[in-house]
Simulated scan of single mutants.
Amino acid sequence: MSNLLLDTIAHAVSEKYHDRVIQHEAGHFLIAYLLGVLPRGYTLSSLEALRKEGSLNVQAGTSFVDFEFLEEVAKGKVSAKTLNRFSCIALAGVATEYLLFGYAEGGLADIDKLDNLLKSLGFTQKKADSQVRWAVLNTILILRRHGQARSKLAEAMSSGKSVGFCIDIIETSIDSSDI
């Protein structure tokens, strides 16, 4: 309940906080879509998440349709391709914040998810660090290449546009020679 209250107040009184959350989620959405993982939905505040999900434990976030990932995790064997996708998507919000603001305030839960997955797969700390470095570098390259698409996507998300509309924004913002 306190997270809901703090997040609601922060969105109401701080345009910077509100913009940071939007940019963070736009980063997740864009990277997922470009890597072939379909975004299912997004929320930009705890209050919005409560309304959509009916739970106090939900924060701003982007959800995905990724049956391949869930199936592999359930089997306890995740392919390198799937792990690379998940790593980039998980770190996309933090990478977006870093590129736009010079540092990241959000994303601890995203980093924890990735860290827990790597541990569950038996990664040593050295191997996990290497995976994270690889994912951060690749995610930043993609975000830099498609900054205009991310910017337009963030604007659409801030207006509460549908997932389909947001995907159309990405498709029309990316030059076909960039793909």
Rank of each mutant, 00 (worst) to 15 (best):
K81A: 06
K119H: 05
M157K: 09
G164V: 02
Q131N: 11
R145V: 04
L4Q: 10
R40W: 13
D168N: 14
I174P: 07
D7P: 14
G36W: 11
C166K: 01
E72W: 04
V78R: 00
L50H: 11
T172Q: 15
E53P: 05
I174C: 07
L47C: 06
A26E: 11
Q131T: 13
A49E: 04
I111N: 03
A80H: 12
H146I: 01
L99A: 05
I179T: 09
F67L: 15
S130V: 04
Q131P: 03
A10V: 02
G93D: 02
A49T: 09
A60Q: 12
L56G: 15
E68L: 14
R144H: 07
R40M: 15
G102Q: 01
Q125T: 09
Q148D: 14
H146Q: 07
I140K: 06
A32R: 08
G76R: 05
L30T: 12
F67A: 15
F101P: 09
F101V: 05
F67H: 15
V13S: 15
K81P: 00
A135Q: 03
S176P: 07
V73A: 03
E15R: 15
G122A: 13
L50I: 04
D7W: 09
N57R: 11
K126I: 06
R144I: 07
G36D: 10
L47D: 00
Y42M: 15
N57H: 14
K126Y: 05
A135K: 04
I89Q: 02
Y98I: 04
L121N: 03
N138T: 02
L34K: 08
K77L: 00
Q23T: 08
S173D: 04
